[in-house]
């Protein structure tokens, strides 16, 4: 399955690994921040509607 990377396998794989890790971290961070903001805003809006 994996192509023959020859003697540079470590270099190529670690480059892909680090990049995927960094991108995954960024995406995860963006998603959790978005979810948190969405939840907080929903709560606050509900509270406002209740109080008039």
């Amino acid at each position: 399955m994996t192509p023959d990377l020859g003697k540079y396998a470590d270099a190529v794989l670690s480059a892909y690994g680090i990049s995927v890790l960094l991108l995954a971290g960024l995406i995860w961070l963006s998603l959790t921040q978005s979810a948190r903001a969405r939840k907080k805003l929903a709560e606050e809006e509900k509270r406002h509607r209740k109080n008039g």
Binding site: L5, G6, Y8, V12, A15
Partner: peptide, 9 residues
């Protein structure tokens, strides 16, 4: 060699 594949990132 295969390091050229890093170019895609």
């Amino acid at each position: 060699g295969s390091t050229v594949k890093i170019i895609f990132l």
